[in-house]
Design a protein around this nucleic acid. Structure first.
Length: 289
DNA sequence: AACTACATCAACCGCCCCCGC
DNA sequence: GGCGGGGGCGGTTGATGTAGT
């Protein structure tokens, strides 16, 4: 690499900032009709005063019909946590394991929710705290060992099934045995003033959000697989209604016209009709296009 | 009601990789 | 093999929304 590389576009001649509904319509219509063989030239061809990269980003993160909208489910958050432990900040890699979710979205939710929780737990763990999980709860010894390494704790399993946990740094002040359920224990400085026993029922019903992050990876394995629909169709319908409301009729290609085409393949090797048909309305009237 | 602090997330920036010439 | 263009990716920013005082 090196100097002299031309910028992707002339920034003085392109519009920046939030996309307007009209721009969205223009971009969606163009891609429905032509695909996106070349992002750099697309804005000009579509009549958009935008940088090609901006168009690509807008399409991938927001306008693509198979983008899953709405809040992340607990299962998705669980997946992100696990995948992040495996891949690190490889958001695209993580996103590839979560259909309908974009790298940008995952990156955002990690930075806003999950990372914070992770950090909080690290702080708590490094302060005064003991914990363990019973073998009866289904949590594996492997998990205990992981905690031992991570938290600098010495973990001894007794013949009775009890587990003795000692902080290596402060062995005399913070050791305990725990024999049932999940114990979350802390002190004032850790922000966990109470010792609380979470029954599995309680966790299932009310407190999934409160299960500390470091428990989660193994903890979640205890849960019965939840049936979660692949896509929140309500969100999709709301999105379509919003588009109907915000976007006026256009003279561009319609979804039904698109569907009339035989599995047209764009230059990315993607089958356009398959991209669109599952979520975009079959009739253009549904969108007012 | 007004102000401030904090949270959220869409969008931008710049670097890197891949591929065709 | 070197070069340049295009796409993809990860980090960061800033506008907007929301909660707290």
């Amino acid at each position: 690499m090196g100097g002299g590389r031309s910028p992707c576009c002339d920034k003085s001649k392109v519009k920046r900032g939030p996309w307007s509904p009209a721009e969205d319509v223009r971009l969606v219509s163009f891609i429905q009709k032509h695909g996106h063989p070349n992002w750099r030239s697309l804005p000009k061809q579509a009549g958009l005063l935008r940088c090609g990269k901006s168009c690509r980003l807008r399409w991938i993160n927001y306008l693509r019909p198979d983008v899953k909208r709405g809040n992340f489910t607990l299962e998705e958050e669980h997946s992100i946590i696990r995948l992040h432990a495996t891949f690190g900040n490889k958001w695209a890699k993580i996103a590839s394991h979560l259909p309908g979710r974009t790298d940008n979205e995952i990156k955002n939710i990690w930075n806003t929710h999950l990372k914070k929780r992770s950090l909080q737990l690290s702080i708590n763990a490094n302060e005064n705290r003991t914990h363990s999980l019973s073998s009866a709860s289904g949590v594996s010894n492997e998990f205990t060992n992981i905690q031992e390494n991570t938290l600098n704790q010495k973990v001894t399993e007794k013949a009775t099934g009890e587990v003795l946990v000692e902080d290596v740094d402060q062995p005399s002040t913070s050791s305990s045995t725990i024999s049932c359920n999940t114990v979350i224990q802390g002190n004032a400085s850790s922000g966990l003033n109470d010792t609380h026993l979470y029954s599995e029922e309680e966790i299932f019903k009310n407190n999934l959000d409160q299960v500390p992050l470091e428990y989660e990876v193994e903890f979640w394995d205890m849960l019965e697989p939840q049936v979660i629909s692949d896509y929140d169709m309500l969100e999709v319908e709301n999105w379509v209604r919003l588009l109907e409301k915000e976007l006026g009729p256009t003279t561009t290609a319609t979804a039904s016209q698109q569907n009339d085409q035989d599995d047209q393949t764009n230059t990315m090797g993607q089958t356009i009709s398959h991209q669109i048909s599952p979520f975009w309305p079959t009739s253009p009237n549904n969108l007012g296009w």
